[in-house]
């Protein structure tokens, strides 16, 4: 009963047209916001892996929504059902939409058809971050790993995504269940 009454007095966001995303937030502002996000996670966690888990949780929140928007806007309400197509879409379209450029590489692990890698030389969220020594293993790209995981899971490809430093860049490891 609530739905009817509330839709009367407010225009719901769902009813608004879905305009194309513009790229218009200055990167400094985003960098500072993200640094606050990282600090917030850091303050509430006691270990590196906990911080990473918290970042990934936040990323998941984003991934779930991105997938919906993507399906409605670009794919004519269709969802990808083939694994490789799905991975390619993440690597190219989604990466480009969210982070301004395509990911560098998409690879399959040797002899393992359940493990895939997405390689990004300079992940957006890591551009402003330098690590103090005691946190050197922390990778804020876990935030992006969370986004990817939520997208994959949302499309019915249950998997676990982790992020790994890897000669200068970050590799996202997608392990399908």
């Amino acid at each position: 009963m609530n739905i009817i009454s509330s839709s009367k007095n407010k225009v719901s966001n769902v009813d608004k047209p879905l305009i194309k995303p513009r790229s218009d937030i200055h990167i400094s502002l985003y960098g500072l916001l993200f640094s606050e996000v990282v600090q917030y996670c850091q303050n509430r966690a006691s270990s590196v892996s906990e911080i990473q888990a918290k970042l990934a949780d936040l990323g998941q929140h984003i991934g779930q929504r991105v997938m919906d928007v993507q399906a409605v806007r670009d794919k004519n309400f269709k969802r990808e059902t083939k694994l490789i197509q799905m991975l390619i879409m993440i690597k190219s379209t989604i990466w480009k939409n969210l982070f301004g450029k395509e990911a560098d590489k998409l690879e399959q692990a040797n002899g393992d058809d359940k493990t895939y890698y997405i390689v990004d030389g300079e992940p957006l969220v890591n551009r402003f971050i330098s690590m103090p020594k005691d946190l050197s293993s922390l990778n804020c790209a876990y935030f992006m790993a969370g986004i990817v995981e939520a997208i994959m899971v949302g499309a019915n490809f249950p998997c676990k995504v982790t992020a790994l430093w890897h000669d200068g860049g970050t590799t996202f490891i997608i392990k399908l269940a």
């Binding site: 790229s23 937030i25 990167i27 996000v37 936040l58 929140h61 984003i62 969210l98 301004g100």
Partner: peptide, 22 residues
């Protein structure tokens, strides 16, 4: 690229939203 100083506004909105929700 020219607009690499800019970030997608949806990423910004969603990041902020995720933070508030958390």
């Amino acid at each position: 690229s020219a607009d690499s100083k800019k970030v997608n506004n949806e990423l910004f909105t969603l990041t902020y939203g995720a933070l508030v929700a958390q």
